[in-house]
């Protein structure tokens, strides 16, 4: 089975029922997306398929029709995505375990809504839980990211 992940093509030998997250972490070595609950109830495993956010722990890899983007594909330490840059500036993370998923949901939101209101943010991020309770900083980081993105940074 062929899978395009972060712009690279991978040939994997996987049962079509295998969750995409397992294929990413165990077969391809992309450990950025995290295993949290395993039932699409926490958001830690969020990646994009053709730009739309999905919970990779519950999506069978056989149902993936499109390019997969993980936290490792949106930016790197030297060239951060505006959302990652904003996360860094706002010092969002505490333990950080949920943040790859938070960031991927935020990226998906900003791709469709350039200047999100508080309500837009709440509506987009409700499926991403943070046990450390970093929600207020997530909200301000999304607003900062929107500004960075609009400014073309």
């Amino acid at each position: 089975m062929r899978l395009t992940v972060d712009g690279q093509s991978f040939d994997i030998d996987a049962d079509p029922d295998m969750p995409l997250l397992w294929a990413l972490r165990d077969l391809i070595g992309k450990t950025g997306p995290k295993f949290g609950c395993g039932i699409a109830a926490c958001g830690a495993c969020t990646v994009h398929v053709d730009g739309q956010p999905v919970r990779s722990c519950s999506l069978p890899v056989g149902q993936v029709n499109g390019a997969v983007t993980t936290i490792e594909g949106i930016g790197t330490a030297g060239r951060l995505h505006p959302v990652q840059q904003a996360w860094l500036e706002e010092q969002v993370a505490q333990c950080g375990y949920c943040q790859a998923g938070q960031i991927m949901s935020a990226v998906a939101l900003l791709d469709e809504v350039a200047d999100p209101s508080d309500a837009d943010i709440d509506n987009a991020m409700g499926g991403n839980l943070c046990r450390c309770g970093t929600y207020p900083r997530i909200r301000s980081a999304i607003k900062k990211a929107a500004a960075l993105k609009t400014a073309g940074l």
Binding site: T31, W87, G96, Y97
Partner: peptide
């Protein structure tokens, strides 16, 4: 923080 916003492999899992 940088490791945590780039999905670096820093957790037990």
């Amino acid at each position: 923080m940088l490791a945590k916003v780039t999905g670096a492999p820093i957790f037990g899992i």
